[in-house]
Design a protein around this nucleic acid. Structure first.
Lengths: 238, 238
DNA sequence: GCACGCATGATTGTATACGAAATTGAGTTC
DNA sequence: GAACTCAATTTCGTATACAATCATGCGTGC
């Protein structure tokens, strides 16, 4: 069940665990993915080092890793910030997903085992739970996991890495450009995909994934009107 | 014309330039891409630090960046080594390229400007030059640049990043699994692509890219017989 | 009163020192 | 002579110290 937050110390995970740059990066990515660390948040090295009970060396390595995944932006002599994808970034991310995910879903459908199906099913169930409990961040994270899991089932490690990165970035994009109306169609699409997987129907899964991604983009407000702050230093830096 | 090598000191670039982790990483990637640093080569931190005239801090950041691109493998307490993609890795890399590059070539054909065409043309010319001069590594690098350039022209930064990584990894794969026969069909395919681009024929470019990639895979020896060394510590470690 | 410049403080960039892990080789034992 | 043990050495992992850079606020001059 393990839940926690970076700011509130409802658990002493920071002292107990033995952190490495990888685990710290994963922890931060998780927090970013769940919108506990919104876009633009400053990630001070000293602050993080103290929070995790480690030195800045590890923190820097973790931030470097996240910057390579374009989840944080490193500004020289200024610090690390949770990335703020532009409208253009958003379009590119979903273009890339459209190239990778439908065909990957096709492969996954053909390789799907019963264990895989059960795992996907429980994922959707958890997503529902989270939604019912009002834990939107957690639901969003699980929703992303669903997509990554498909790539894993397709047995394409390399593509899985790309998709994982794209989905984490999608979470940032959703944080910035999500328009409220038409909310929970998410789990519906996942349910439909699950059915296609259960029938090992690759063509259908591919088609469903394609339209699912189109729906996602359609649910965003990517008019350039809402341009991200550029000139006056991140528009008050939040 | 600036050419140089890591081992031989035919130029004193190491003292003059002001290196950062990014430039060091790019320099190493270039060397790997050109097969001056073959798969399995040990990249000792102290060695590199001394070579570039910087401290291990920068070297570590560069190696970390390259490990995220799967060009070097970091083994805990043992050091960094130029990656040795397995047969499975090779298949995955070319599967991913097959997903990304044909459609990207399609987009590129539609957005192609005359300047872009000239750039691609000069790239091919340089590739020919290198081949004639027997500089196979340089030719291979330029051949890769051709593909990355197409992604840039398609105006897809994110996909370009993925393709760039995949192409660098492809260079390692070629170093390990290239079978000699049927050598220079490379530039032919690029010429054909260039023609399609010149005619702004997206469908043709997409098709040509697809078969180009198939040809590439076909030119590799990916039978599992030639398994990469695993058990006896990198098979004499080079 | 406004703007510019300089000093101060905070934060990151880099180097180095120390500790930990693993490899290596010699020495010993069976 | 073969195999094992253990110390010595090398190399990486982490922390910390110092330098450089940027942001901030006060003071001065126009």
């Amino acid at each position: 069940m393990q839940r926690w937050s970076l700011a509130q110390s409802d658990m002493n995970k920071f002292e107990t665990k033995h952190w490495t740059s990888d685990t710290v990066a994963a922890d931060l990515e998780h927090a970013i993915h769940e919108h506990r660390l919104p876009p633009g948040t400053k990630l001070g090295e000293d602050e993080l080092a103290e929070a995790y009970g480690i030195s800045r060396t590890i923190v820097r390595a973790a931030l470097l890793a996240l910057s390579h995944r374009r989840l944080v932006e490193l500004k020289r002599n200024r610090g690390a910030f949770v990335a703020q994808p532009t409208v253009r970034d958003a379009r590119e991310v979903f273009e890339a997903r459209a190239l990778l995910e439908p065909r990957t879903a096709h492969s996954a459908a053909e390789r799907m085992t019963d264990e895989d199906l059960a795992l996907l099913r429980s994922n959707i169930a958890s997503e529902h739970e989270a939604l019912d409990a009002g834990e939107n961040g957690r639901a969003l994270f699980l929703s992303g996991q669903f997509h990554v899991e498909i790539a894993r089932i397709a047995d394409q490690t390399t593509v899985q890495g790309f998709i994982s990165e794209l989905i984490s970035r999608s979470s940032l994009i959703i944080a910035l450009y999500w328009r409220r109306r038409a909310a929970l169609c998410e789990t519906q699409a996942h349910h439909a995909l699950l059915d296609a997987f259960a029938n090992r129907d690759g063509d259908l899964a591919e088609q469903l994934m394609k339209s699912h991604l189109l729906d996602l983009v359609a649910s965003l407000d990517l008019r350039n009107v809402t341009q991200p702050p550029t000139s006056l230093r991140e528009a008050l830096k939040r």
